[in-house]
């Protein structure tokens, strides 16, 4: 209205209006994304401990990361171990739970609520529950095993079992992915299944040749989200290990080590270099997944 009075042509009027409406994002984008991205790149080329001014190092931080023998190998191993197992297992468990909920059952909303709930509990609570539940001496799980005359399992105190235990907890908290799958499953046209029934297909055929292809775009979406989340996994292992990354460095994941370097050792430059390496790896992983998806993702009549 007021802008019309200024005699602006509609095209420029709309440009101005559009920019006014998105201006909060534009400010946030420049101040809290673009500027930090650039300065992070700058810090990654410097030694910086917050106290003294940054000292230019060139690529030394990156070289140090790739040649370091005491932390890098174990941190990278832990992270890849976790990502490669937790992402597919989480997606599979979410998909199977959704599939089970999508059959004709009584009390579906109750089961759905129970399966979903772990996903919205604060991480600090999840950590407290599982630390206690899996405790080798006082935990309920080991208590039950002893009650059955079996030997106890040191889930969180044995370096070989700590990562599998974290993956198990991850699978328990897949409510978001499960709900997304459930909505997708409900959108698969019933006519497809009926046509298949007429053609004499059994349950497995329908699952393999209708359900999976129709859900494949969403499987890809959830898989990518799980990979990205897995690479950045911080809060739960940090809380469960009490900030130690233990036992014996077995849950010292990439993001935990990065945090430790930045905020405990004040190696801001080195942490920035680690962050950029992580960024590149995540982008590369996502691109590879997208590229490979042409072979198994079906973009037919499914929602875009």
């Amino acid at each position: 209205m007021t802008l019309q009075r200024w005699g602006l042509r509609p095209k420029y009027r709309n440009l101005l209006l559009g920019l006014i409406f998105i201006s909060p994002w534009l400010i946030g984008f420049i101040v809290f994304t673009i500027y930090p991205l650039i300065s992070s790149l700058y810090y990654s080329l410097h030694r910086y401990d917050l106290l003294r001014p940054p000292v230019f190092l060139g690529l030394d931080n990156y070289i140090t990361f790739f040649t370091d023998k005491s932390h890098t190998p174990v941190v990278v191993y832990n992270t890849l171990y976790y990502v490669v197992l937790s992402a597919p297992l989480g997606v599979v468990s979410a998909f199977l739970l959704a599939g089970l909920l999508n059959t004709q059952i009584k009390g579906r909303s109750v089961f759905r609520a129970i399966f979903f709930f772990p996903a919205i509990v604060p991480a600090i609570v999840t950590a407290q529950i599982w630390r206690f539940l899996l405790n080798v001496q006082y935990g309920a799980v080991n208590g039950a095993l002893q009650g059955l005359g079996l030997s106890t399992i040191p889930f969180l105190s044995n370096p070989d079992l700590s990562k599998p235990s974290l993956i198990l907890i991850h699978m328990w908290a897949q409510g978001n992915a499960m709900l997304i799958f459930l909505a997708t499953l409900q959108d698969v046209p019933r006519s497809l299944y009926e046509a298949a029934t007429v053609d004499g297909a059994n349950g497995w055929h329908k699952f393999r040749y209708i359900t999976i292809p129709m859900c494949s775009p969403v499987i890809l979406f959830n898989l990518i989200m799980a990979f990205i989340g897995g690479f950045q996994n911080f809060t739960l292992p940090w809380l469960i290990s009490g900030g130690t990354g233990g036992p014996n460095q077995s849950t010292e994941f990439y993001s935990i080590h990065l945090y430790r370097r930045a905020f405990q050792n004040l190696h801001m430059g080195y942490a920035s270099a680690m962050a950029w390496i992580l960024f590149v790896v995540i982008v590369a992983f996502t691109v590879i997944l997208f590229r490979s998806s042409g072979r198994w993702v079906y973009y037919g009549g499914a929602a875009e």
Binding site: N14, L15, T33, S39, S40, F231, M268, L278, F279, V283
Partner: peptide, 27 residues
């Protein structure tokens, strides 16, 4: 509102979700 450059900026807005928090955390 329809304005020139809108879809490009929206795409950039969506893309910022790809930036891991770890990169922004230190700065």
């Amino acid at each position: 509102i329809r304005w020139p450059g809108r879809d490009t900026l929206f795409f950039i807005c969506i893309m910022t979700m790809m930036v891991p928090f770890q990169v922004l955390m230190v700065p």
